[in-house]
Amino acid sequence: MFSDKDISRFTNLETPFYYYDLTLLQNTLKKCASAANVYNFHVHYAMKANFNPTVVAKIKSVGFGADCVSGGEVKQAVELGFDAGKIVFAGVGKSDKEINFALDQDIFCFNVESIQELEVINELALVKGKKAKVAIRINPNVDAHTHHNITTGLDENKFGINSWDLPACAEVLKKSAQLEFVGIHFHIGSQITNLDVYKSLCTRVNEFANWFEERGFTVKVLNVGGGLGIDYHNPDQQIPDFEAYFKIFNDFLEIKPNQEVHFELGRALVGQSSSLITKVLYIKNGKKKNFVILDAGMTELMRPALYQAYHKIENISRVEASSVVKYDIVGPICESTDCFGKEVELPETFRGDLIALRSTGAYGEVMASNYNLRNEVRAVFTED
Rank of each mutant, 00 (worst) to 15 (best):
E365Y: 12
Y39P: 01
N223I: 07
K86M: 12
K288A: 14
I115Y: 05
V261H: 10
Y363Q: 06
R137L: 06
L118I: 03
D96L: 05
Y232L: 14
K128H: 08
A368H: 15
Q105P: 00
Q26K: 15
T54Q: 13
D143A: 09
E123G: 07
V69R: 01
P332F: 05
V197K: 02
Y39H: 15
D328I: 05
L253H: 02
S8C: 09
A321K: 11
D328K: 08
V172T: 12
H42I: 15
T152K: 03
K284P: 04
T23A: 09
R137H: 05
R267N: 14
L281K: 14
D67E: 08
H187Y: 05
D236N: 10
K288F: 14
N157T: 13
R204T: 08
V38A: 05
M298K: 14
K30Y: 14
A57S: 13
V270W: 00
V261K: 08
E14L: 10
A132M: 04
V78L: 12
G229Q: 05
N139S: 09
S200A: 04
G72S: 12
I283S: 08
G129N: 13
Y307S: 11
T152E: 01
R137T: 02
I333S: 06
Y310I: 09
Y18W: 10
Y39I: 02
I329D: 01
F181Q: 02
T151R: 14
F51I: 09
S190N: 08
N122E: 00
K128N: 05
G352L: 11
V221R: 07
S275Y: 01
I255Q: 04
K60S: 07
N223T: 04
T151I: 12
M367K: 11
C339R: 14
F159N: 00
I355K: 04
F89E: 00
P257W: 08
G153C: 00
Y371C: 06
N111V: 00
V324G: 07
F108P: 02
S322R: 13
I7E: 01
E314S: 14
T193I: 11
V74M: 03
K128M: 09
R358N: 11
